[in-house]
Each structure stands twice: as C-alpha cells, then as structure tokens.
C-alpha cells in the first residue's frame, strides 16, 4: 500500500511540474534572472504548493503517526550549520547553471530530453562523490 501511495504521489508531483512548465529550464533560469526578463512563475508554483501543504501539514503533525506507518520519518534537524550553508550554495550554483533541479530532471525523462538524462546521471555522480568527500573529511 505504501508503494501505491508512493506511485500516486510521484505521478501527481510529475504532473504538477509539467502543468506548471517547471520542466522547462528556461522558466527556471528566467526566474533566477531577476535583472533580465524576470519570469516569476516559479514563485507562484511555490505559493500554490505551500498554502495547502502548510495547512495540511499542521493538521497531519497533530497525529501520532501517519496512516500507514507507526511513525513519521521527517527531519528533526534544527540548527543551521556549515553543511547546510555550503550544500545549499553549491546546489544553487548547479541549479543556475543547468536550469534543472532533481524533480524536473526525473520528470524530464518522460519527454525524452537528453539534458534530463545527463542531469539524472550527473546528480548520481555528485551523490557518490559527496559520499566520498564526507567520508574523507569526517573523523
């Protein structure tokens, strides 16, 4: 059952990204380009996503557990630390260069967009290298 919910949730997410045209890297780059021909669409996607989910999350979190599991698996981290800062900055640079974040890269595969495929592969390369760096750096 959790698999079916995962599938349904993924389909909705991919459909939402497609309807909002967030799979179009030009929309992303023009959102980030505030001194150019600024396209604020991405901000409206976030408003449309955040208002209902903030209200729903508030109610869901009052429960002791989700419907299909014994506990929530959400992050409990609170502190703004160095990895969060450096990681988010690195992510932002990559997002600006490519015009893709992970969701649109995966959904972009359905449009047989070779750029989406390059993104998915290079994101995984980044995961693997990151794991290697962290292992080297942490005692």
């Amino acid at each position: 059952m959790t698999i079916l919910i995962g599938l349904l949730s993924g389909i909705l997410f991919g459909l939402g990204l497609s309807i909002a045209d967030m799979i179009n890297p030009h929309k992303i780059i023009n959102f980030l380009d505030i001194v150019g021909d600024w396209d604020p669409s991405l901000a409206f996607v976030m408003i449309g996503a955040l208002i209902p989910s903030a209200i729903a999350f508030y109610w869901i979190r009052k429960r002791n557990a989700p419907l299909l599991d014994s506990q929530f698996h959400t992050s409990n981290l609170k502190h703004i630390d160095r990895p969060l800062m450096l990681g988010s900055a690195t992510f932002g640079v990559g997002w600006g260069i490519s015009g893709f974040c992970p969701g649109p890269a995966v959904t972009g595969l359905s449009f047989f967009n070779p750029e989406a495929l390059v993104m998915v592969i290079s994101i995984y390369l980044g995961f693997i290298v990151q794991k290697f760096i962290v292992k080297k750096l942490s005692p």
Binding site: G87, G94, F100, P102, S122, F127, K131, I133
Partner: peptide, 10 residues
Amino acid sequence: GGFLVGIGSR
C-alpha cells in the same frame, strides 16, 4: 550543473 546539484543537495 547536475554534478553540483547532486553534491549540494546531499
């Protein structure tokens, strides 16, 4: 870009 997205998001 994808490589930096991968490293940064992790």
